[in-house]
Amino acid sequence: MIAKRSVLTDEMVAKIEALAPRYPNRQALTLPALHIVNAELRHVPLEAVAEIAAILGLAPAEVQDTLSFYQFFYQAKPHGTVRAFVCRSISCALRGGDQLLEHLCHSNGIQPYGTTADGSLTIEPAECLGACDFAPCILANDDLLMNMTPDTATAALKQPRAKAT
């Protein structure tokens, strides 16, 4: 089927198709496809949902249902070039995680889940990042920032960072 696509590039489609032999049906490609699109666009707009559905042979509503369940994929607009997950679960909270989150939001002038005006940084509260031995911690794209204080976190988030893979 040759459908006109406006969001998914041929490269993204090729990446999705390369995974197809791994699964006995195409619906199982939903999450990998969402990740492939999200890694490039930093969000998965509704048009992309329809295009993913078309190549997987699903109803757009099925893909949208899965996408919306996770609250992970931004849809209306992209998240920042750096997406910082600030852990607020128990081991981090015991060592200042909530204060860290508050400080970072305040100093960047944004609310939790907000993105700075220049699009460089999104700050999100996260549940346990599985790095409680380094509490409080932040996952910034693929980098784990360990044993953070408000000052070290502010400095670390100013560093340039490879995009999330």
Binding site: R22, N25, Q27, A28, L29, T30, L31, P32, L34, H35, E62, D65, T66, F69, Y70, Q71, F72, F73, A126, E127
Partner: peptide, 29 residues
């Protein structure tokens, strides 16, 4: 044996074994 990595999307419930299965199948977990 083929061994494949499959990535989640930040939801605790995907650790429950049947939630994991549903998630792997491409559905809500």
């Amino acid at each position: 044996l083929e061994l494949y990595l499959h990535r989640g999307a930040a939801a605790y419930i995907c650790g429950e074994e049947t939630g994991l299965i549903e998630s792997l199948e491409g559905k809500r977990a």
